[in-house]
């Protein structure tokens, strides 16, 4: 299978869906002539022209709202946020308008919009550009939230997201953009809401998503080699809808759970997961559920220290050993 970068997998998903459905348009800051701030949309303007690949001003509330309005009329806009951190200036549009319009209209109006872009820390850009808002987004019924960890998943999930009739928020990762993974040439889609067991194991389940999947796999490798511990890594891939069944099946197998997330601990995705696991698999647990998050402070700039604020293989390893102790 060809090895391609995560960003290229996303680009290919966009190109395939632009080709498949004339209602699909790509809009955002620097997506066209500039070729994308992170080169995700490189070459799309040349291939599809300025009507389909539209550069917007730096005006997130305006252009995201415009995309939502267009989606109500049946256009299927894929809007790029240069950083998901900028969702805050379009919050009203995203979480009042996109999330609520179907409900408040009694089901008369659909909003088939995708909003995508990177949401991660670890690039030393400080607190304003390092938000991971998947918990805040997923707290709003009416929306779907996807956080892919690999090139393969990113492509298959984005194609599903674009075909979905509900608003889908797709959270990528600037650090993963250059990561290569196997992606088949032939077309495929991955349904939203389906977790993936990225590594099978016996002793401990790590439930995670996004870049911490990659870090958890690295930690699992160390735990196997250095401590003879067999770790299962469950990649949620989608936060809402949530494949809790795959999580519970793994818990029933290993009886120990570590949730790893690039979120702050308070009211994060992990808080929801741990609630559900204890509620539905209490008798299967041999230890309290453990959680490893980003250290609870705004994102620090200092480069070597930011790496320690976020999940990393060593922190995950320590948390796993503490849980198994």
């Amino acid at each position: 299978m060809p090895l391609i970068e995560y960003r290229e997998a996303i680009r290919n998903a966009l190109a395939e869906e632009l080709t498949r459905d004339p209602n699909v348009v790509v809009m955002g800051e620097e997506v066209g002539q500039f070729q994308g701030a992170y080169k995700v949309t490189k070459g799309l303007l040349e291939k599809f022209g300025p009507t389909r690949i539209a550069d917007t001003p730096i005006s997130e509330a305006g252009f995201i709202g415009m995309g939502i309005g267009a989606s109500m009329l049946g256009v299927r806009p894929v809007m790029e946020l240069m950083f998901w951190s900028f969702y805050s200036v379009a919050f009203d549009q995203i979480l009042n308008n996109a999330a609520n319009v179907r409900y408040m209209s009694g089901g008369q109006i659909n909003c088939p919009i995708v909003i995508r872009g990177p949401a991660n820390g670890g690039t030393n850009v400080g607190a304003t550009h390092s938000h991971t808002p998947e918990n805040i987004l997923a707290a709003h019924p009416g929306v779907k939230v996807v956080v892919p960890s690999t090139a393969y998943d990113a492509k298959g999930l984005l194609k599903s997201a674009i075909r979905d009739n509900d608003p889908v928020f797709f959270l990528e990762n600037t650090i993963l953009y250059g990561e290569k993974g196997e992606v088949p040439d032939e077309e495929y889609v991955i349904p939203l809401g389906k977790a993936d067991v990225k590594r099978e194991g016996r002793d401990l389940t790590i439930v995670t998503y996004g870049r911490p999947v990659i870090q958890s796999l690295a930690a699992a490798e160390l735990l196997a080699k250095e401590h003879d511990i067999s770790v299962e890594v469950v990649d949620l891939r989608t936060i809402r809808p949530l494949d809790i069944d795959t999580v519970l099946a793994s818990v029933r197998k290993t009886h120990r759970v570590l949730v790893v997330e690039e979120q702050k601990p308070f009211c994060g995705v992990g808080a929801q997961l741990t609630y559900m696991i204890q509620a539905e698999a209490f008798d299967d647990l041999d230890a309290p559920i453990a959680r490893l998050c980003t250290i609870d402070a705004p994102a620090i700039y200092s480069p070597p220290v930011e790496a320690e604020q976020l999940p990393n293989p060593q922190r995950i390893l320590k948390a796993a050993l503490a849980l198994l102790d």
Partner: peptide, 15 residues
Amino acid sequence: GQIPLGVGLAYGVKY
């Protein structure tokens, strides 16, 4: 908050 949506409707008409 509805005004950007209105622009989106106009965009949809034109598109």
